[in-house]
Design a protein around this nucleic acid. Structure first.
Length: 424
RNA sequence: GGAGAGGUGUCCGAGCUGGCCGAAGGAGCACGACUGGAAAUCGUGUACUGGCAUCCCCAGUCGUGGGUUCGAAUCCCACCCUCUCCGCCA
């Protein structure tokens, strides 16, 4: 959510931002409603002021005088009610429009319609070439007896899977390695609720709009998180922090649940797009300052780059174009790791900068050095998400004999396993 | 699942027989005094949101939404949330 004042004073910028993001929202209508709203508020408030001072006086009156004054006030009250009713009608439309206005993207965000127009910023590593016919991760998983998709589907439907044997160790090794790195980078880890209230979903700007993507537990009014970003960013919901305590660096580790509604037929093979995965997520809460936000954004992005480097995975960083940005983001980098079976880079990380867009909804504020209340800025980035990252790890590290060599950095967490040998 | 208690400012906590209550008191924080410096002590200030182009003033907010009233933190109704005890259970 943006500040209406900001929209009023930067109408063209906001309109242009919406255009760049390919989001349709009637800013002119919003501004029109804003004017009506302020006019009605002013009128109503003036009457209320009259009423307030009159009722003070009434307390001191007696008899007929009092009766007269009361009668007079009743007509004023009626008028106030009329104005407020009119105001309420306007506010409904005003509020819903406000929730739809997208955060205008940064200047350097490229124009574009979808992920094909994302801009490659840098690449790392050399794309592996095999002197044998490489397998994809599904075939590898079966041969190594670490992945069983058919039985996962049997139990839980499409986009389900079962990791087993060394696959389990590999997944937890990735997570434990990530947690370890997070610690040295100064991020405080959190295990958070996986079921959250609607306020957290709205506060982080997943709702309204993303309801279809979330699993909901109707009976309890709770939603399964699609990322730890939701509970971790909401951690300080409705709080006023002290500037000296910022920035806050947190990381959440959690399973993530996504319905993937509307993606039928897309990425149907293997572990790329699934309903349930695990993730270590970086979250930053910092002060209201574009420079600081930009600095933190580069920081969390480079953190993840160093992780995939340590795993030895060839990857690239792309700057996400306007049309591929969500409503709340100011700017977003994706990190994409090489996935041999796709013969392409596949998104493994998503690094987002929000400014105060989420913080406004979350009532997440801080007191600055002058004692003024400010909305915080928030950012987040995947640190590692598995099993998607396993696609790269397995496929890039496969050997001619069908075995997979575990990256050096993961071995301390692998219970002594250095190579996963084929069983089938 | 059964029974009860409660939701007030950055935090804790009074008020709840309706009227200078946006709210006592304490903690915290800020500034000042004291000090070589600090602690302690003393003094002053300190809720949020919005309107106003913002020092002043005005409106709203004591879980949320309605209602009663000239006037509600205080009375009534509905909903949400939290806690305690019992039961069940990892």
């Amino acid at each position: 959510m943006l500040d209406i004042k900001f929209i009023r004073e930067n109408a063209e910028l906001v309109k242009d931002g919406a255009r760049k993001k390919r989001i349709n929202v009637d800013i002119d209508r919003l501004l029109e409603l804003d004017e009506d709203r302020r006019r009605l508020m002013k009128d109503s408030e003036q009457l209320k002021a009259e009423k307030n001072s009159a009722s003070q006086a009434i307390a001191k009156l007696n008899g007929d005088e009092k009766k007269e004054a009361i009668a007079k006030m009743q007509t004023v009250s009626a008028k106030v009610k009329e104005l407020d009713a009119e105001l309420e009608g306007i506010l409904d439309e005003f509020d819903s429009l406000m929730l739809q206005v997208p955060n205008p993207p940064d200047e350097e965000v490229p124009e574009g319609a979808d992920d094909n127009d994302n801009m490659e910023i840098r690449t790392w590593g050399t794309i592996p070439e095999f002197d044998f016919e490489p397998l994809d991760h599904v075939e590898l998983g079966e041969k190594l007896d670490i992945l069983d998709i058919p039985r996962g589907v049997k139990l839980a439907g499409t986009r389900s899977y079962i990791l087993k044997n060394e696959g389990v160790f590999l997944e937890y090794a990735v997570l434990m390695y990530a947690l370890n790195q997070m610690r040295t980078l100064g991020f405080g880890p959190m295990i958070v609720p996986h079921l959250v209230k609607e306020t957290a979903m709205i506060g982080t700007a997943y709702f309204p709009g993303g309801e279809e993507q979330a699993y909901s537990c109707e009976r309890d009014g709770l939603y399964l998180i699609g990322t730890a970003e939701v509970p971790v960013t909401s951690y300080h919901y409705d709080e006023i922090l002290e500037e000296k305590d910022l920035p806050k660096h947190y990381c959440g580790i959690s399973p993530c649940y996504r319905r993937e509604a509307g993606t039928y037929g897309k990425d149907t093979k293997g572990l790329y797009r699934i309903h349930q995965f695990q993730k270590v997520e970086q979250v930053v809460i910092c002060k209201n300052d574009p420079e600081e936000s930009a600095k933190q954004h580069e920081f969390i992005t480079s953190n993840s780059e160093s992780l995939v480097k340590a795993l030895g995975l060839p990857h690239r960083v792309v700057l996400v174009c306007g049309g591929d940005l969500g409503q709340p983001q100011k700017k977003k980098y994706d990190i994409e790791c090489w996935m041999p079976s796709r013969k392409a880079y596949g998104e493994t990380h998503s690094s987002s900068k929000f400014y105060d867009f989420q913080a406004r909804r979350l009532k997440l504020r801080y007191r600055d050095s002058e004692g003024n209340i400010q909305y915080c800025h928030t950012l987040n980035n995947t640190f590692v998400a598995t099993p998607r990252i396993l696609i790269s790890i397995l496929e890039c590290n496969q050997q001619k004999d069908g075995s997979v060599v575990i990256p050096e950095s993961l071995r301390p967490y692998m219970a002594g396993i250095e190579v996963i040998e084929p069983k089938n």
